[in-house]
């Protein structure tokens, strides 16, 4: 049953890759509930199923077994169109920035707003500039990605993910290319979003310094959720 307090509710979630004899189970019986506004970090060794779980929670893969309720909507048997609509309420931050090379920093960020429909150009330009300013890129608004450093590109990608005030941010190693001060700034920004707008963040990271700032730390091991530590206390 959907619960308004939770952005994400997964129960008895299993997932397999391949077919026939090559079929391999990647996730085993995952039960997970993430509260609105919380900042959750997920850790685990490579191949433990973190990425698979992120893609399932982000409506990027079909749910094969079990249930995922995202923002009150059951994803099992959801149509592609329903998934697309739901993804517009999410913010994705990938390990690779995946910025569009022909668009400036501001234009890349604007793409995160335009997906929500027609928005006044002046207002959206201002919003994009504001977010980039918060990320320390106020002087790089009209730079193409080719003229930005790796860390700057990643910050533009983060700006693109959060400019539309998403309900959930799903992030995969978003701070890997950032120095600690910048990474801390990004984490604080995401946490502020959670407090101000109820945005939940689920972040995959190996950076122990970020673990210290998380509300909750989940640990995945061989496709199983083996640890769930509440750090708010």
């Amino acid at each position: 049953m959907p619960d308004e307090d939770f952005s994400i509710q997964a129960s008895a979630l299993n997932h397999w890759f391949g077919t026939g004899e090559a079929r391999k189970q990647a996730l085993f019986d995952i039960d997970l509930r993430i509260k609105r506004g919380s900042f959750v970090v997920m850790v685990g060794a490579s191949g433990s199923g973190k990425t698979t779980l992120l893609t399932l929670l982000g409506c990027l893969r079909e749910i094969q077994d079990g249930s995922v309720i995202l923002l009150g909507k059951e994803l099992r048997h959801a149509t592609p169109a329903q998934n697309v609509r739901l993804r517009r309420r999410l913010g994705f931050i990938f390990q690779a920035h995946n910025l569009h090379e022909s668009l400036t920093a501001r234009q890349n960020v604007l793409m995160g707003l335009q997906v929500k429909g027609h928005i006044d150009k002046t207002a959206s330009d201002r919003a994009a500039a504001h977010v980039l300013g918060l990320l320390g890129l106020a002087d790089r608004l009209d730079y193409l990605p080719a003229n930005l450093s790796g860390g700057q590109k990643q910050r533009v990608a983060i700006g693109r993910a959060i400019v539309g005030n998403p309900d959930v941010v799903l992030a995969d190693e978003p701070t890997a290319a950032l120095d600690w001060d910048t990474a801390a700034n990004v984490v604080d920004l995401l946490k502020r979003l959670g407090q101000a707008r109820g945005t939940s963040t689920l972040m995959v990271t190996h950076d122990n310094r970020i673990l210290d700032r998380a509300d909750r730390v989940l640990t995945l091991e061989d496709g199983r959720l083996v640890g769930d530590e509440d750090r708010r206390a």
Binding site: G58, L60, A81, V84, R85, L86, R87, R88, R89, L90, F92, F94, A96, N98, L99, H100, E101, M111, G112, V115, R160
Partner: peptide, 15 residues
């Protein structure tokens, strides 16, 4: 050449 960028837009909810 732009498959990765287009995939990103797909993830973001572009139809």
């Amino acid at each position: 050449d732009h498959l990765r960028e287009y995939a990103t837009f797909k993830a973001m909810g572009y139809g």
